[in-house]
Design a binder for these strands. Structure first.
Lengths: 337, 337
DNA sequence: ATAGGTTGTCGAAGCGCTTCGACAGCGAAT
DNA sequence: ATTCGCTGTCGAAGCGCTTCGACAACCTAT
């Protein structure tokens, strides 16, 4: 393994000079810099991460805590994780992958050991156990998701309230009066992750203003669950013509079942989905949808963190404005209803 | 930040004693050990990762390179990643998340800087650029996937050859004579990742033995691509009654299209999928499938690596035997054909 | 010509840990 | 009673880097 000292010797300078060439923290004459860079290249030198971390008390690592559950929103999580890793590299950071399994202990371990300089938490619950720890440390962090209280925290999330409102507005404009909301799996509500509730709140209050009727039903993914939910919905509200779907693994089942029941999309019923672009585009009917901006969230989170680590940046809640893309799954409400 | 020295002072012993309590590399009297452990708890001590890495030249980190592409097999990748992270923690390791984006440079960087003690590479291509580097270093690594030459490498993968054979056998036993294989997206074949080809080879050679006819068509995910592919298949081989699907994002479109064309599953045509359990179970027809054992692969990879790092273990290719689960999408071939 | 300021480089200290050799203390064997 | 071999503990060196203060060498302003 090549060391700084070897590079220094090879270039005929002192170790500290090489260090300054690397960090740029002091000015170095062009000739010296070039000589050093040449030696670095020739010897194939890579600074030792441990030594660097020890001396500078900076690991250049960002920890990313992803939920252990592989049951929900998997592509979104992956997309965020990839965006985080990619953006982090651009800023010279690596990413440590932690699962939610360890819970608050993981936070303690990371902050205590100097393993990482900062953390990103995904899938934050309203009253998350990890929050007090984050508030009590000076290690920067960003949450992807919105807890009940955000004081002293930095959060990035889609504005789910506005998202709900946007969906219902779109349906209202098309003349739909009876809206059914296919929500997340019951487990998501029980876990109090918040985003599902926020969507619903935003949707409901806008619906009230617009004078629409809303029926909300949580729903597990898969066909059987969807079939049961759909039957109940049409039982209670036979005139339902508009659907808002938040659970992406319920989207395809819903479309298949509607087709099976002879209800045409978008002629008889309209469907708006809250899901990643790819799902919306690849579905059997190209879906009018509000995209979940996974990449943007990941990128934002890292950039906030880097700003904080550089002494810039501050605590702040960033709610990304939702954008609704009209595709083939929504149309005017049928005249008869 | 609490240091070893502070713990030592608090416990009234020397720093080295604390270190030995932590590592267990020398025997320590029970009373001393307990006193030290008590101090560690009281002070909330966590060893500094950088210092530890520097002194021991072991980072206790495993690097995981995941492909940048988010277009394929996303849930499988995520499942592997989670399994890797979880298993690694059990053995005292953390996981560094690298994207394939950096390519071979990432390997150089990690081995050169001592950032990680070992690497796991996912989505390995037949002639992967990173392989020469891995062979040229003494850093242990495990590939998830199978390159063209495995000499000097450790690999873990599903036995895709046997998987293909198993699928076709199942269909043969049910009396199907004309089999269509819906393969991966063309991009997957162009990338030469190998698993798709291996599946096909295994399937074809078994089909030959059994006297079946096989038609293979690569297929992108989504409805439009699937519709085109399906049309071509029935055009060329109208008597096709058995399908093997490898592209999981083609599964649902296929089922929907068959339904639409009035071909009942499993009465008229049978479908076998190669996909994660969850996809098979949640599909509109519960699918007879060979599961992709993502968790097992991740766990295996880590355990191999840990064994190597402990001086046990050796280079080896582990092919996981496929298991076919019969569900509702396959049945006897229709009598007429 | 002198004081003052820059610029570029160096030496040394030290980050917090592991690990090696040393050795005190003690029971067992001679 | 002396030697031997344990066991448990300590001190010190050193891992490879960053960073601080020092200081030549030069330039500019007086």
């Amino acid at each position: 393994m090549v060391t700084l000292a070897e590079v220094a010797q090879h270039a005929g300078v002192s170790a500290s000079t090489v260090s300054y060439v690397l960090s740029g923290k002091r000015s170095i004459s062009t000739t010296t810099r070039q000589r050093v860079e040449q030696s670095i290249r020739e010897l194939g030198y890579h600074p030792n991460a441990g030594a660097r971390a020890l001396a500078s008390s900076r690991s250049n690592i960002i920890a990313l805590m992803v939920p252990l559950r592989t049951d929900m929103y998997v592509p979104v999580m992956m997309e965020i994780a990839i965006a985080v890793a990619t953006t982090a590299r651009i800023h010279g950071y690596d990413v440590l992958l932690l699962t939610g399994e360890e819970g608050p202990d993981a936070v303690r371990r990371v902050t205590g050991s100097g393993l990482a300089d900062a953390m990103i938490l995904m899938d934050v619950e309203l009253e998350d156990e990890r929050l007090p720890l984050l508030r009590g440390t000076d290690q920067p962090s960003v949450l992807i998701g919105l807890p009940a209280s955000t004081s002293g925290l930095t959060c990035v999330d889609l504005d789910f309230g506005a998202t709900g409102a946007l969906c219902v507005e779109h349906l209202a404009k098309l003349g739909h009066r009876d809206i059914a909301v296919i929500g997340e799996a019951p487990a998501v509500y029980e876990r109090h992750t918040g985003f599902a509730e926020r969507t619903l709140d935003g949707l409901r209050s806008r619906a009230r203003e617009l004078g629409l009727r809303v029926l909300h039903r949580p729903c597990d993914g898969g066909y059987d669950a969807m079939a049961a939910t759909l039957a109940r919905i049409f039982d209670e509200r036979p005139d339902t013509t508009g659907f808002v779907v938040q659970n992406e693994s319920a989207v395809e089942p819903l479309l298949a079942l509607l087709r099976q029941q002879g209800r045409a999309v978008p002629e008889d019923v309209s469907v708006v989905a809250i899901c990643p672009e790819q799902v919306a585009v690849q579905a059997s009917v190209r879906l009018t949808s509000v995209a979940i901006p996974a990449q943007e969230m990941g990128r934002h989170a890292v950039e906030h963190l880097v700003a904080k680590l550089d002494g810039r940046g501050s605590d702040e809640v960033v709610l990304i404005a939702p954008e609704l893309t009209v595709r083939a799954s929504t149309g005017p409400a049928p005249a008869g209803s």
